[in-house]
Design a protein around this nucleic acid. Sequence first.
DNA 1: TGGAGGCTGTAACAATTGTTACATGCTTAT
DNA 2: ATAAGCATGTAACAATTGTTACAGCCTCCA
Lengths: 210, 210
Amino acid sequence: MIEELIQSYGHLFERELLEEINQVGTFKEIPEGYKLIEIGEYIRSMPLLISGAIKVIREDSEGDELLLYFLERGDTCAMTLSCCIGQTKSEIRAVAELDTKLVMIPIQKMEEWTGKYRSWRNFVFESYHSRLMEMLEAIDSIAFMNMDERLLKYLGDKVKVTQDKMVHTTHQEIAYELHTSRVVISRLLKNLEKLGKIKLHRNNIEVFNL
Amino acid sequence: MIEELIQSYGHLFERELLEEINQVGTFKEIPEGYKLIEIGEYIRSMPLLISGAIKVIREDSEGDELLLYFLERGDTCAMTLSCCIGQTKSEIRAVAELDTKLVMIPIQKMEEWTGKYRSWRNFVFESYHSRLMEMLEAIDSIAFMNMDERLLKYLGDKVKVTQDKMVHTTHQEIAYELHTSRVVISRLLKNLEKLGKIKLHRNNIEVFNL
DNA sequence: TGGAGGCTGTAACAATTGTTACATGCTTAT
DNA sequence: ATAAGCATGTAACAATTGTTACAGCCTCCA
């Protein structure tokens, strides 16, 4: 396990901390689509991503969804941190977007390391910073952009995260993640196709000019 | 100054830290409407709120605004923290909503205290947590609520923050903060008045049933 | 005291997004 | 091979939000 840890976190953490992580962390391989965290659950450990990607989703009381952002290699879930510390329930759902490798750290260690390792503190702060910025981006999207722009951004993000110009989803799934209806997505996708920005296939969308 | 610090932060910080804050912090009184931070500025100190309230606003490249949340007594601006650490420009604007008292802390101290005081660490984490939650709330509002619900929530929040059932603003200002147009706000306010939830006056809105 | 400018009300219309309904074609299981 | 179910395309319409235009008031200042 240690080599993969070093690959993703070697430049961030000192040897000693890496070894502690190696000792207390649990290595996990998660298949695409696996639900890591559900809304309302209590959380007792935090993930350090080694590879793959995780999508973080917000849901309101009526079951309406909204995709917030993706976590990738080198990321951790600040929302999880937050919940751990506050001993509160999760406000979000986390689902593997790709097959994903990660290390789970028990939360007690997190507290301990924050006092002990400067590099860990910086990592945690950096992580909070990133997440706040992603939340701002999410807010920008829904507040300032029209649905067609949001859709294009969504497709671009997918391409970036999956490293694949073929976005493998249905219109319905996109509708859920952007919190709109399937018909709207079909309509706008058709427009984007007419504009030459994408090409539609069954279960697949081919994205150009990312 | 020390009594006011103790009143707001005595239950959080140990004596020693409070005295450090007292030594290195700069006490400031800010009038309503004063702009504390502008988008794009670099930030070299973080505020600890003693009294009053600060509104935090997002703006896109075209100058469209959106109110994100309020900071109150006992809060600090995690966004500022974030920017300090990352040495990045501010992504938000901060404006005093009321006459406000606060203590400004130089950022070097912040880093130092994070290693030194457990209570400070907890405070910082707690603060990040709160801000993430407020961002989620903002996202919920714009993603899941209609404008009339958002407007009602907006008025409720104002009443809570100012402790005054008379909300002193113009329709245009509300429109800016909710990122819509004045006409829309006037229309919806009129509806709310018909429903008996508010009463309209010039430059003032009286809010019932908060 | 008269005029300028800000605040509010309202109508009429446009644009965007959401909803319902239905048709078509593909995939899969029996 | 056929039925069932999913994915997509599209039309027609509804609801919400945004825009333009203008009128009436109030306030404040010259």
